[in-house]
Amino acid sequence: MLSRTADSLYWLGRYIERAGNNARGLQVALRMASLTRDVAQRDSAWRALLIASGCEPGFRETGQVATQETVVRYLAADPSNPSSIISCIEAARRNGRQVRTALTVDMWEAVNETWSEARRSTQQTFAPDNLPVFLDWVKSRTVLFNGAYADTMLRDEAWRFVRLGTMLERADNTARVLDVHHHALGGTEEDGAVGYLQWQAILRSVSALRAYHWVYHSRLEPRRIAELLILRPELPRSMVACYGRIEETLDGIAASHGGRKGECHRLAGEMHARLRFGRIADVMAGGLHDFLTATIDRNLELGRQIQGFYLQA
């Protein structure tokens, strides 16, 4: 497969996943804002969302204050933000169009129809009363795309590069969501109504609230939330599950290239092993924030290594 084709497939997966992650994050922030009376706490929730999405540096350059109106606009529709939902949909469609023949009919229709509908959005689409409908629509479209490529693609290189992009983006998002709320999980904040809302917000941000109750059959506890999202392989968005799929996918790509491997394979295997054999007691004892920050940094390095080994012509 040509590296430019692999690159387009990889970024198609990443951009679709990013759009869905931003939609979930916005939904959770809206819920937190509606349940929190204190204005400072509401604004703090919006700033936390910017940090979790990796968009805080770009937003800061705009000179705006992090409020519901400004953050919603920046993360949902701002064309100057390459990670806004609308920008992600545009980029996903652009990448999909470049590799149209590598996609199944269902995949292309999912991407193209999403793009067509997104183009019809107006300022009213992002008004407070209409925003929840838009965010639900974005989530449903990303689920549709993920289902289309899971159910209709041959398990060949094209499928592997879409999956690789999806899983790398998903792992990064889970780590960032946990990191931005690490104080609420590390025992440095008092347990109370606000703390409980934050614990719910963490789980809702990765669609794992019901999964938590199914696995633990108990009330929310910070340590168990961290364990679920970091070390439980049965949760599709846990870090260990994502890195397991990344390692598996990279091994499959290597096998189709005569077994040739690079630093990205070593790094993915190391990250997966660290999580697979890790214990939450050790993670918490060593500092949750330090652990997550190191993981985010290594995830960025993994992305660079994949880009250099497979995706650069």
Rank of each mutant, 00 (worst) to 15 (best):
R31I: 09
R18M: 03
L9R: 00
R24Y: 10
L26P: 00
V39I: 14
L9D: 00
L35C: 03
S34D: 12
L9K: 01
A19P: 04
A33Y: 04
Q41L: 15
V28D: 01
R31L: 14
G13A: 09
T36L: 13
G20M: 03
E17I: 08
A19C: 10
L35W: 04
R24V: 08
L12V: 08
R14Y: 08
R37A: 13
R18V: 05
A40H: 11
S34W: 01
A19S: 13
V39S: 13
A19M: 10
I16Q: 04
N22T: 15
A40W: 10
R31K: 15
G20L: 03
V28Y: 01
G20A: 11
G25C: 04
R37P: 00
W11R: 07
Y10L: 02
V28G: 04
G20H: 04
V28H: 02
A23N: 03
N22F: 09
Q41S: 15
W11L: 05
Q41R: 15
A29I: 06
D38F: 07
D38K: 10
R31D: 15
N21R: 12
E17Y: 05
A23P: 02
N22D: 08
V39E: 15
A40K: 14
W11G: 00
R37Y: 08
R37Q: 13
D38R: 12
W11H: 10
M32D: 06
L9G: 00
L35H: 06
L35S: 11
M32E: 12
S34Q: 10
Y15T: 06
R14F: 07
V39P: 15
G25Y: 00
G25M: 07
E17G: 05
M32Q: 14
I16A: 14
I16M: 15
E17W: 05
L30Q: 11
N22G: 08
R18H: 07
R31P: 01
I16N: 01
A33W: 04
A29L: 06
T36H: 08
A23F: 03
E17K: 09
N22R: 09
N22Q: 14
A19N: 08
E17S: 09
Y10V: 02
Q41Y: 11
A29G: 04
L30K: 06
R14D: 01
N22C: 14
T36F: 06
Y15D: 09
A19H: 01
R37C: 06
Q41H: 14
A40M: 12
Q41C: 09
Q41W: 12
L30N: 12
E17A: 13
T36D: 07
E17M: 11
Y15W: 13
A19E: 02
E17F: 04
R24C: 07
G25F: 03
Y15R: 15
R24M: 12
Y10F: 15
G20V: 08
Y15V: 07
R18Y: 06
N22W: 01
L26Q: 06
L12N: 05
A19K: 05
Y10Q: 00
Q27P: 00
G13N: 01
A29C: 09
G20N: 03
N21I: 06
A33I: 07
T36I: 13
Q27F: 02
W11P: 00
S34G: 10
T36Y: 09
I16G: 02
L9I: 02
L9M: 08
Y10A: 00
A29N: 06
A29W: 04
M32Y: 13
M32H: 10
R24K: 14
I16Y: 02
S34M: 11
V39T: 12
D38C: 07
R24Q: 12
A23K: 05
W11T: 02
A40D: 14
R18E: 04
G13Q: 01
